[in-house]
Amino acid sequence: MMEAQTIIKPETIVKPTIIDSRGTMCPGPITDLFRAYRNSNLGDVLELWATDPAAKSDVQTWAKRSGNELVSINDEKGYVRIQVRILRKGVSR
């Protein structure tokens, strides 16, 4: 197994990549997040906007399992904003 190497200084402010999945039902939001994950770099912050109630717990579990950092979950009017910092992403061998 390849360990992803990450050194991210806490003061580094990264502009989040917004993934607007509002109005899509499961598996829309997590599908959109994974598409963005595939195209992301270490240190990137992905911000998922979702109306689907399953999105919160799905992203939380994924972040925990995959070693990526759940930065924040914010309840907005009618949707939720979930930020994940990409700390782990395998590298092509």
């Binding site: 390849m2 994974f34 595939r38 995959s66 070693g67 395998g90």
Partner: peptide, 21 residues
């Protein structure tokens, strides 16, 4: 679950995920 396939090594017959598995 949570296995986003990153690449395959057909010689070793192994699958690697973006999550590092």
């Amino acid at each position: 679950t949570f296995f986003n396939l990153e690449s395959v090594d057909p010689r070793k017959k192994e699958l690697y995920s973006l999550e590092g598995d």
